[in-house]
Amino acid sequence: MFFEPFIETIYLTIVPLLFSCVFGFIIGTLIFIGTSSILERKSKPITIISKICDGLVNILRSIPYLILIVWMLPITNFLTGSVIGTKAAVPALVVSATPFFARMVTIAFSEVDHGVIEASKAMGASTFDIITKVLIPESKPALVSSITVTAINLVSYSAMAGAIGAGGLGFEAYQYGLARRDESLMFIATILIVIIVFAIQIIGDKTVKKLDKRGG
């Protein structure tokens, strides 16, 4: 009986996660390039784009998710051809998770040891080399942690997406618990959500541990 909502929750986590990671990575990288003092030769356009992204991320992060859903109704309709259902929940989830992930990417990059970046510059590395060959590999554990946290956020946001009929375990728990007063079913739905969150966390932590060669 929980099979379908379970699949819906997985869908509402994985699909927005993929989009958010791609967009968030690009935006977070742009913000880093524009704001970091350690990279050289910043073209004017990049600096401007970076500033705009930075502002946008701040604004979007402060809008509550439920309000975002309402505001995005026209865009959602345009993108998915509908304003209700599981698919229709995806755009708003992407828009809410992307700025969060972007911020995490910027932080992950800025935590890479400056000495290593300097050393790479001294070896003749370009900014592109530094991003692809230094920043990404050196911040891999932080990036994977960020993906983990974003995925967990998406699980809980997806429950709110129930408001527009997206389905999922969260909506199920809400329906049984609040509307039908069937607490045991609400409990089961909640347990399933907790299991999903734990699974994501464990997989994330294991991956980080495997990637991290810093020792100690």
């Binding site: 290593v116 050393a119 790479s120 001294a122 070896m123 003749g124 080399d129 590999p137 990637l211």
Partner: peptide, 30 residues
């Protein structure tokens, strides 16, 4: 810069690469 090597107080190696790949890094760049 490729013809000017530099070493530092804190070594500044990439922790994510093995010794061999650290040494080879300047060649990876080109």
């Amino acid at each position: 810069r490729r013809k000017i090597g530099m070493i530092f107080q804190h070594f500044d190696l990439l922790w994510s690469k093995t010794v061999l790949d650290n040494i080879a890094f300047p060649l990876e760049l080109i």
